[in-house]
Each structure stands twice: as structure tokens, then as C-alpha cells.
Design a protein around this nucleic acid. Structure first.
Lengths: 341, 341
DNA sequence: ATACAAAATGGTAACGTTCCCAAAAAATGC
DNA sequence: GCATTTTTTGGGAACGTTACCATTTTGTAT
């Protein structure tokens, strides 16, 4: 209470408890044997003085910094938000802190940040939807820097861990669901083609059509970018076809919301005139009216699991990289109706 | 190239350049006078060896850690996303890193995190929409820890800096705009009442009514929470009144989107039957059809400015706290029409 | 040339930890 | 009771910086 602002160090505690600083250190890390009597004394002294470990000193000495870097393209959409929630939570319960870097899809920024992080104070690196992997993958491997790629899979080495949902299967299931409702002209709004997940979903869509003997019609496919506006534009264009599609499958929920808008702005109704299905199951999907039928990615769990994989790699650095795939699930809400006869 | 994984230190550079480590340090921080010839030599050696400064050692020595902590209630909505974008950008251009902590509106988490950050490795702290300020404000002041509160203003000391938009004026302007379009039954969806900005906006709305001799009708006010679903529910309820409002003002864009949905789900049209106005001007407001008329908060600038204020306080610790207010702007898009006669 | 100031450089202690090694204390076996 | 093992504790170097102070080099005026 009397003490001024000065930070209290391990030495202060040692003096207060009447032991050596080595002993205090041992108590702090409860590493080696310390007699219960001294442990008590030290614990008391720590309490009295309000001691907190100095992470910088600790990690300078050669230990972990207890910091994980996270690189995201952007923050502020629910897809990423949900994943971060999982990451953040799992990290916190393992006494790790999170250093955030947003690239805003600028590739130079992405590789600069990776360089900073790997040589800086983070112990590991989480990469969410990276777009410039080639630029730094080599250096990441060379330094054996623990890292996990989320939602990116084109990796050809044994040291990188990757994690994603079953994009192909999810898209397959969604398409199949629409087909079984009697739809055979099903529009598709593609995500950004430079991302592997977009291609996987597209190919799941095609496979389902094929399996049900519905010929693939390229005019029903519109190239979007996962944003609402392109969903709107795509649907507008698809609805001008004759005959127009009776259902539209958007590669993510955000663009599905754009699709719904476009349908309504044409004076049509969802799902009576056109059925809509999305992908992701972001929180808004359940809040919207009618509720959006969609393919659920377990976003929060993905974040959580990515952290677990990373921490595992951190404690055991020469483990090979893991490939984790989480299964998607069709969430039926209210935006799909049987096709009219 | 030839070297193994070993990190290269200032001493390696010194040896390589044939100078002392003090000189290298001087070059790195370009602090004191170094002859251009030696500077060149050192710079070259640094380049050759690929030297990067070790932040932990630096900050252990007593300097800055070049890290700023950011506490947010959540990540994954565009309002926060835009602010973070500004923060992030400004921080990066000042060679600062960002440590992110999300509270998910749990008050205990909030105060725990503040404790961690202030005793940990951050130089300063940014608090976005804090909800539990009382719990740690005292300790923040006691340790004279530099901090800026964004979108929170009930602060009664001289050391805390705050920053927000002109919430009252923005709401006043929006309401006035609707009134001038001929509306006199204007519904209002309140934000979370525990936030000061919600109260300010509400009181701006009331002031505008009063100034135009429109009696305040409490049944036109619905208590929301800034989320889409409550916007939907609120509008649904308001539209059941008789006569129903001819315009609805939502305390933020997200709930305005819910309002629009509710209006449409009643078979009515926006803006022909009911006008809608929001607050914030999140990116979606411009992407939606019809475009959402709203009150613009300069979100990205707010983030940017918050960082500037914090850094100023960081370099000059005994400066008193600043109170910054950024002006809002009415953005007219397509969701408001003149009231029918 | 000499003296002196100014500029440039080097040596080194400290920051708060951890961890190895050695010393002391306690426990064990004869 | 003595030697020996085991457990517990202390001493001190090292991690990579920076900043103070001392020293050397360079420049300038007499």
C-alpha cells in the first residue's frame, strides 16, 4: 500500500519473503521442488506486493512470449468475426494474447506483416484467408515458424497446418437439397475465384447437378466476390434470363442477402417465387426474415481448433503439419420452397 | 543464406561492420550523431545479416514496447470493423502493433483484460464502447496509464481522453430532415440505454420534435439493442399502432436494416409507405437497395484520431486528457420520401 | 604548431527473468 | 554417529538492448 508506482520485481518478492530470487522464480513457474513452507511464504509475499511477471524479461531469457499473431484480410464481417471469437476465446484460456494484423487484401501488406510477426514477439502465426501465401511460405518453413492456415488449402509441404470446412460437401448438400425440392434451374453466385474454397464449393454444386442428371448451364453461374452488392447484381442478372432460375445458391450468406434483395426488388417473393440458400451461417442468417436456409460452417469451432493445432505445434515443434477438416451442416430455415409444378 | 536459424543480434552487426554495439544501436535508433561513413557501413552490415531489432530486449531496457492494447466488445460488425480499420492503419504507420482483446460484453472479462494490459506489455490502451469503466478507471489513473475511450463520455477526471461523434446533433439532423419531409409520426428505435451515445441520440430526436412543435409520443419509441433482430421487432410493433408512424428512425444502421425488413414483411414498401433513416453509415448502408439514408459517423477517422490522441499522450504523459468530438453528416440516399398528404 | 572545442565512437552496467551449478539442509542406511 | 543420498535453496551468468560516461578522433581558432 505504501509503495509508489514502481513495478515490483521478483527480487522485491524475494527480499520480502526472505528467500532468493531463484526460489521465487521456481514458485512462479511451479517448476522444481519447493518445500510447502517456503512456497507459502513466497506466495504471501507476492500477494502482499502485488507481483506480476514481466513477460518481456521472461521471453528475452529465451522462453515463450505468450503471444500469437493473427493475420486477417479484414475485420468487421460476421464470418471473420465468428472465427476470431473462437480464436480469441481459446487463446485466452491458454494464457495467450492476440496480436492482430489486418491486410485489407493488400498483398504487400500481408507479406510485410508476416515478416514482422515471425521475427517479432509472436510465438506462432494464424493466417485467415491468406491471399499471398507463396510470398512468405518459404521463409516460414525455413525458420520453422509454427503456423496454421485457416481456409486455405493449396499447400504442398509437410510443415504447414491447414484447417477448413468441407466446402465441397457443403455445396453438394445444398444443391442436392434444392434439387430434391424439385428445382432444376439453380443459379449459383461464385465467391472470389482466387480462393480455393470458392472453387471447391462451385465444384460441389456441379457434382450435385451431375449426379442428378441436370446438365450444367454456365449462364446460371455468376462470378461474385462474397460481398452483398455482387450478390445483388448477380441475382438481378440471373433473373433476367428466360426462363429465370427457380432457386439461387450463393457462395456465402452475405451475398445471399444481396440475392434476396434483388429478388424482392423485382417484385418477386422469397421463397414463393425463388428459393435462396447461402453458405456460412453467420448470425444474421438467423435474424433475417424469412430465416435464411444455409450451409453451416462451425466458424467459432474453426477458430478454436486452429488455436489448438497451433499450440500443439508450439509445444512440439518437429511434429508435421496437420490437415483438419470440419464438417458442414445444412441448416434449413425458411428461404427454400418446393419448386412450382 | 549460409547462416543457420540463429537470430542475429546487434553484436553480430557490430562485429560485421567493425564498430561497437553502441554505434549500431545509435544507427538503429538514429539517435545521436554518427558519421555518414560509419552509418553506411552499419546499414550495410544490417542488410547483409538481416538484422531485426528485438522488441522485448528493447522494452525490457525501459523503452516503449510499441504495442497498443485495444479492448472491443466484439469484432464482426461493420461499425467496429470500420473503427478498427482506422486504428490499425494509423498504428501501423507509426510502427505500433495492436493487441486485441474482445470482451463479448462480459464485464468481468473487461476489467480482467484491462489489468492484464496495463501491467503487461502495452504502452497504451484504447477502449471501444466500454461498459464497465468504473471498475478500472481508478487504477488506470493511479498508474497514469495512457488511455483513450472511444464512444463513451461520462468521465469526470482530467486524465482520460475521450472521443466520439456528435451523437445528439446527428440525431437532431436526421429527425429534422424527416420532419421537413412532412413526417410527424416518427418512430424511434433506441440503442442500448446503458450507453451514453444511445441517450444522446434519443435526446437529439426529442429536441428536434420539440423545436418543430411536434409533441413527443412515448408509444413511438421502442427500446432496441443495436442489433438487427430488435430493429425488426421494434418496427413490427410500431407498425401495429394506429395510426402507424410514417417514418422510422433507427439508432444505428444495423437495426435500420431490421426495420426495413419488418416493413416489407408487412407488405409495405420503403420508402413509399414508410421512410427509414439509420445512423452510422456502415458500408452495407450503401450496398443495400434502396440505399439507406443515414447519419454518417466518420468511423475510420475516429479510429485514426483515437490513435493520434493516444500517441500524443504517450510521448507527453502529463498532458491532460483531450475531449474530441467529430461531426456527423446526413447522407441522403433512397429510403426517405416526403410524407403523403 | 598548439590548444581547445566539438563530434564520433567505445566500454559497460542495467532492465527482470530463467536456469545451470554448487552449496546447504534434510533424510536415509549402515 | 558417520557416510551417503536426496531434497531444497542460493549464486550468478546470460538473454539483447540502451544510455551514461569515458575515450578517441576530428575540426577550428589562435
Amino acid at each position: 500500500m505504501g509503495k509508489p508506482d514502481n513495478t515490483v520485481t521478483i527480487i522485491d518478492v524475494a527480499r520480502e519473503a526472505g528467500v532468493s530470487n531463484s526460489t521465487v522464480s521456481r514458485v512462479v513457474n511451479n517448476s522444481a521442488q519447493v518445500s510447502s513452507r517456503t512456497r507459502e511464504k513466497v506466495l504471501n509475499a507476492m500477494m502482499r506486493l502485488g507481483y506480476v511477471v514481466n513477460q518481456q524479461a521472461r521471453s528475452l531469457r529465451g522462453g515463450r512470449s505468450q503471444v500469437v499473431g493473427l493475420l486477417v484480410p479484414d475485420v468487421g464481417n460476421s464470418y471473420i468475426g465468428e472465427i476470431i471469437r473462437g480464436i480469441d476465446d481459446e487463446l485466452a484460456s491458454n494464457q495467450y494474447d492476440l496480436m492482430l494484423y489486418t491486410t485489407h487484401r493488400r498483398k504487400t501488406k500481408e507479406s510485410t506483416y508476416v515478416a514482422t510477426i515471425t521475427r517479432g514477439m509472436a510465438d506462432g502465426l494464424l493466417l485467415l484467408l491468406p491471399t499471398n501465401v507463396a510470398a512468405y511460405m518459404e521463409s516460414l518453413q525455413a525458420r520453422q515458424f509454427p503456423h496454421v492456415l485457416i481456409d486455405y488449402q493449396r499447400v504442398d509441404n509437410n510443415w504447414t497446418s491447414t484447417l477448413q470446412a468441407t466446402n465441397w460437401q457443403g455445396a453438394y448438400d445444398a444443391t442436392k437439397y434444392l434439387i430434391e425440392l424439385g428445382h432444376c434451374r439453380i443459379g449459383y453466385i461464385v465467391g472470389l475465384r482466387e480462393m480455393q474454397c470458392s472453387l471447391d464449393r462451385l465444384s460441389g454444386y456441379r457434382a450435385a447437378l451431375e449426379d442428378h442428371a441436370i446438365p450444367f448451364d454456365p449462364t446460371l453461374v455468376y462470378d461474385g466476390d462474397y460481398f452483398l452488392l455482387e450478390g445483388y447484381r448477380g441475382a438481378t442478372k440471373l433473373l433476367e434470363l428466360s426462363p429465370p432460375p427457380t432457386a439461387i445458391f450463393a457462395a456465402n450468406d452475405t451475398s445471399a442477402l444481396g440475392v434476396i434483395e434483388a429478388i424482392r426488388n423485382r417484385g418477386l417473393s422469397v421463397p414463393n417465387d425463388v428459393s435462396v440458400i447461402g453458405f456460412d451461417d453467420i448470425p444474421e442468417a438467423a435474424q433475417v426474415h424469412p430465416g435464411l436456409t444455409t450451409v453451416r460452417q462451425p466458424l467459432e469451432d474453426m477458430g478454436r481448433l486452429a488455436v489448438r493445432v497451433l499450440l500443439k505445434q508450439l509445444t512440439n515443434p518437429d511434429l508435421p503439419g496437420e490437415r483438419v477438416e470440419l464438417s458442414t451442416e445444412l441448416i434449413v430455415r425458411e428461404t427454400c420452397h418446393p419448386a412450382k409444378a
